[in-house]
Design a protein around this nucleic acid. Structure first.
Lengths: 192, 192
DNA sequence: ACGTAATTAGTACCAACTAATAAAACCAGG
DNA sequence: CCTGGTTTTATTAGTTGGTACTAATTACGT
């Protein structure tokens, strides 16, 4: 069947564009030893937009994403929050969070989720982490769904102790204790 | 002088494109009530590439960045490594690493740098963090240059204790102790 | 050998440019 | 007021990487 060839090519095309999304139809045609028109038909049927559109979408997404992933104040989705008391956040483990070698989530994502949740719970205009004690109990794999629960244990002056426990769907996989220091709005004496 | 008008427009043009880089020359011309050609001349003299090029550069940069920030095994640049003994990594604090409110680096970047350095130092095919004890000593601000030094303190079986101390140009700002567990290549019994 | 699916070829058209050249407008100095 | 330089606008031709469409050709199984 000729259809088999086509289906194989469709898969290969998608894979190729995943690896290098900046290829023109002409380059793709060359790469697959077919005509440009075939590539266009393939794209059409797969719903893959043209190079410029792809690029634009990536650039636009990046504008959002770099802010969201790399610079969001909270890693994970906040689903419940009682200021000064407790909070819950959920984080889905995506492929780019895992170590390539082992397929296990890099530890600092768990840490980031817990830490930023702990910060969110603090009822203060600004806060900094002072000390953290962290225990990883189970390795996390891709597509797992991590639910972190934070609880304020003690509050004394500007110092707050927060416990965060993270579970996957079955068991506790991570826990951390943070000592978080709230910052006053007043000017800091010895700053820089 | 007519040159003044031009210079003002140049500034405004750069600002406009910073806010919305996805504008065509035609839209820009309309926005500034000048002809398309004027915009083109302005771009030429300011060294601003055309829309498509701009978009492409953004998309490419994002690809690097998401890989580098979100998916690199090592956060920071490894500049020295003695496997099983010690390592040094450097991390420059960029604007997207800081909390907007305070301009202070979010803690999990320091953690990520230290943790991934500690992992790199371990002389094993794969490793996982078991426990971490972390202390933040000084807040970190933008453009600071963080030098993390990792040192293997003790090694017993699959467990390794690594100390990481991070300094900015003046003083120690962060330290962490990690217990890292090396994984054997052999098959794990109770996996999922 | 035939019919259908798949592929290739070809045409007209488009957006968003670059490059180059020419004309017009402006503005200031003598 | 006129002249000269700067700035702006206009015009034309050529480029890239496509869309949308039609028509011709090839391949393939039966």
């Amino acid at each position: 069947m000729a259809a088999a060839k086509k289906i194989t090519r469709h898969k290969a095309l998608q894979e190729q564009l995943r690896l290098d999304p900046f290829m023109t139809d002409e380059q793709l045609a060359e790469a697959f030893s077919v005509s440009v028109q075939t590539i266009r038909l393939d794209r059409l049927r797969l719903g893959i937009p043209e190079l410029r559109e792809r690029t634009r979408l990536m650039a636009e997404a990046a504008r959002q994403k770099v802010k969201a992933i790399a610079s969001s104040d909270l890693v994970g989705d906040l689903i419940d929050l009682e200021l000064g008391k407790s909070g819950i956040s959920v984080l889905e483990v995506t492929p780019d969070m895992v170590l390539e070698k082992t397929g296990i989530a890099r530890g600092h994502y768990l840490y980031a989720q817990a830490n930023s949740l702990a910060m969110a719970v603090i009822d203060a205009p600004a806060a900094l982490t002072g000390v953290a004690n962290v225990k990883y109990k189970r390795p996390i794999r891709i597509n797992e769904r991590l639910v972190a629960k934070a609880e304020v244990i003690r509050q004394r002056g500007n110092n707050t102790i927060v416990w965060v426990k993270t579970r996957n769907d079955r068991e506790e996989v991570f826990r951390a204790k943070f000592l978080i220091v709230s910052l006053e709005e007043k000017k800091e004496g010895k700053d820089k």
